[in-house]
Amino acid sequence: MNIEQKKDGKALVLAPEGRLDTMTAPQLEAALQEALPGVEELTFDFEKLEYISSAGLRVLLSAQKTMNKQGAMKVIHANEMIMEIFEVTGFADILNIV
């Protein structure tokens, strides 16, 4: 899975491509672990993400918990399919979706 990263000072933008599922979620988790320290503004750009499974949700929830302590987090460009999953699982209320 290709994860595009843009870091600008204390702002980090992560844009995973394809599917965020059981297989690929660990990659995103690893990327976050590496880049997240010191970040105060985390943005997930899902423009190129097809769908997300519960494994991906775990990563998002984990990131949200971290960012609640050190700054803010938002999700942008989520497609309809992903939005539906956010709605069904209650993540729409947790995440800051723009």
Partner: peptide, 22 residues
């Protein structure tokens, strides 16, 4: 429980629930 806040929610346990819903 999908109403809990981010800090209170456990990590995981959503998979089968997602399947049921979709």
């Amino acid at each position: 429980n999908v109403k809990l806040s981010a800090d209170d929610r456990p990590i995981g346990g959503l998979g089968i629930f997602l399947v049921k819903k979709t």
